[in-house]
Amino acid sequence: MIPPDEELVAALRAGDENAFGAVVREWHASLLRVAQIFTPSRAVAEEVVQEAWLRVLGALDRFEGRSSLKTWVFRILVNTAKTRAQREGRTIPFSALQDAWRVPEPAVDAGRFLPDDHPLHPGGWAVPPRDLPEEQLLARETRERIAAAIEALPASQRAVISLRDVEGWTSEEVRNALDLSEVNQRVLLHRARARVRQALEDYLFPENP
């Protein structure tokens, strides 16, 4: 849908409005997810995305292609969002991105496992997960629950899972766009997936303790 970078950059520089409209539409939802890491509301995130695109246009003639255009645009977005937060005197929750690993957050509630001093299976499953009912997985409501679980995630986890698992970016693309270390990217992804899985299980097995 989006042409390779060289072609795309040339089209944009030549003022091709269709090419611009196409990338704006293609990347918008992802840009919005990322902007929301730094902004207090969706409305502000929308403004930040708009502002970032204006900066992109302003700098496009100087784009050297050292990274992909997509990475470059997302980096400009992140900088725009940070600058805006600073200007408005808001603390940037970016430390939540960089220091994800500092606050432990178990993938599965500790109560699901046997205690560490259990004679046979310390740390083994006390309440193991059960087979998911395949026919229900395909139901629209199940997908709606998953979408709702993603919406409910902290913004940094939501951004990473949206780019990786919804949009299908590679981990390298996500790391470059968000300026994240490999480990932090993985920690955020791990927590996001674990929470979404839990939401799925809660929905399909509401009788679980």
Partner: peptide
């Protein structure tokens, strides 16, 4: 279940 979660997440589209 994690794989299923990833697969289902991949079938969503952002707004």
């Amino acid at each position: 279940q994690l794989r299923t979660t990833i697969r289902l997440t991949g079938s969503l589209t952002l707004d």
